[in-house]
Amino acid sequence: MILSISATPYIVNHTPASHRGRIGLIISIIIGTGQSLDPIVMGQILSYSSIKSGWIITGLVAVVTAVLMFLLEKYEVKLEKKKIKNQKIIIF
């Protein structure tokens, strides 16, 4: 139900060209496994609790994922600034 549409471009931008096909396959397997197991896992959760708690769990997973993506973005910006700072400027 929750899918990041920008996951593939992110992965492509951070993978060497020689490995993009392999990584694409691995990502497809991971997404497919998640889509296969999700109904089973959520079905088990709902058999012991209510629909409301299922949505709360889904919402919590979404919030945790969003926070992790935000932290990843901050980390990458920090790395990029450090990379730019360490580059020598050549003036012709």
Rank of each mutant, 00 (worst) to 15 (best):
M1G: 08
I2C: 02
I2K: 08
I2Y: 10
L3I: 11
L3G: 04
L3D: 15
S4Y: 07
S4P: 01
A7W: 01
A7N: 06
T8S: 10
P9E: 08
I11D: 07
I11W: 02
I11K: 02
V12E: 13
V12F: 12
V12W: 09
N13L: 15
H14T: 10
P16W: 01
P16M: 12
A17D: 13
A17S: 13
A17C: 01
S18G: 04
H19L: 14
H19D: 15
R20A: 01
R20V: 05
G21M: 02
I23S: 04
G24E: 08
L25C: 06
I27S: 10
S28E: 06
S28G: 11
G32W: 01
G32D: 11
T33E: 09
Q35H: 10
S36M: 10
D38V: 03
I40D: 02
M42C: 02
M42G: 00
G43K: 00
G43R: 00
Q44F: 08
Q44G: 15
I45Y: 04
I45C: 02
L46N: 09
S47Y: 01
Y48R: 14
S49E: 12
S49H: 12
S49N: 10
S49A: 13
K52L: 13
K52M: 12
S53P: 00
G54C: 07
G54F: 09
G54Y: 03
T58Y: 06
T58I: 03
G59F: 08
L60R: 10
V61E: 12
V63A: 05
V64P: 00
V64Y: 07
T65I: 03
T65L: 05
T65F: 06
T65N: 04
A66I: 01
A66D: 00
A66M: 02
A66T: 05
V67T: 06
V67M: 04
L68N: 07
L68S: 11
M69H: 05
M69V: 12
F70V: 12
L71Y: 04
E73R: 11
K74Y: 01
K74V: 09
K74T: 03
K74I: 07
Y75D: 13
Y75P: 03
E76N: 14
E76Q: 13
V77E: 15
K78Q: 12
K78I: 01
L79A: 06
L79G: 07
E80G: 11
K81W: 02
K81D: 14
K81S: 12
K82Q: 14
K83Y: 07
I84A: 15
I84G: 04
N86P: 01
N86F: 03
Q87T: 10
Q87L: 14
K88I: 03
K88P: 04
I89F: 05
I89E: 09
I90Y: 14
I91H: 04
F92P: 15
